[in-house]
Design a protein around this nucleic acid. Structure first.
Lengths: 167, 167
DNA sequence: AATATATCCTAGTGAGCAGGTCGGATTAAG
DNA sequence: CTTAATCCGACCTGCTCACTAGGATATATT
């Protein structure tokens, strides 16, 4: 499997989408609530959110203590999926010698140098896709109207499946 | 690491590029020679080439016995990197529920459905990139002139680093 | 015919990592 | 002072990757 999104990336993105949906709430959103809504383990989410908080620049900000929780450190339009994925999954590099940015190493073997340009192309395709999509794109414009809704519960009927052309 | 090319994919593509460079030779190319040229383990290459041979349609054809070896089953222009990578690394699917072609499953969770479209976009970007590059593109037009060269030895000075725009 | 050189096939294996769990310390609200 | 949160590090467990080993079979050359 050449494209391998681990659970870190998968759950972490879901976590961020959840936070984006609650961005205009007056209170921070607790991991307990997110874990319940997304059916994920709280202890595991704690590990992921730590990465997001310690990122430079940070993607989430925390409030400790009772009624604490997390919120996005920036509006959803200003956070790209590329940022999130890089924090959670590490740099977008298909292999050791094709890290983003650095392609200076000249290797002494015959065909491997030529294949590196292939992997670089694939890497750039992924990076460009991820960098062009923001959290706001995933949450969708219709959600923005339900701003400031205090403790906004979602039922199954609220699930909307966007047409793929919408992305 | 979201993009993860295992050694199967890496070595396998190098193997195919090597075969493409010798496509116009009169004799098949042995794995022993490839292993030496690319500094790879013979026994491991045998496993990889098996996948390429048993693929449907096959990507390489073998000749057994002394002076045997492998050759591409089609000219390099007709073999895409997408074919090779799918044979070696399996279908291009970032996660279980985003296999190529099938996106019909509707999931009951809140944000995960929305994120699936993200992963589908990434998947398509990778697939499109790989499907648009052929073995001939990687070998490079300049190589084609050295056709029919019998047992063509390559020295270090033969290594050419193509500009990335050439891809 | 004998030998050398290939492909072909199946099993096994060791290290590393994904994907968590667990227990507890710290902080703040009511 | 109790409750509800974030914070922190250690540990564990099963799976997969990346090979290696050892042979069986096929064919060209001598």
């Amino acid at each position: 499997m050449i494209l391998r999104v681990s659970t870190k990336g998968e759950y972490g993105v879901r976590l961020m989408v959840d936070l984006a949906r609650h961005y205009y709430s007056s209170r921070p959103r607790s991991l307990t609530d997110i874990a319940q809504a997304e059916q994920l383990s709280l202890a595991y989410l704690e590990q992921l959110v730590k990465l997001l908080r310690e990122a430079e620049p940070p993607l989430v900000a925390s409030t400790r203590g009772a009624h604490g929780g997390y919120r996005l450190s920036r509006p959803p339009e200003e956070i790209t999926m590329g940022e999130i994925v890089r924090v959670l999954e590490g740099p977008i590099a298909p292999m050791i010698c094709a890290t983003e940015g650095e392609m200076t190493q000249i290797c002494s073997l015959l065909d491997s140098c030529k294949t590196k340009f292939l992997w670089a192309r694939v890497r750039d395709a992924v990076a460009q896709t991820l960098d062009s999509i923001t959290l706001a794109d995933l949450v969708g414009a219709s959600e923005q109207e339900t701003q400031n809704a205090p403790t906004h519960f979602i039922s199954i009927s609220d699930i909307r499946v966007a047409p793929s052309s919408a992305l």
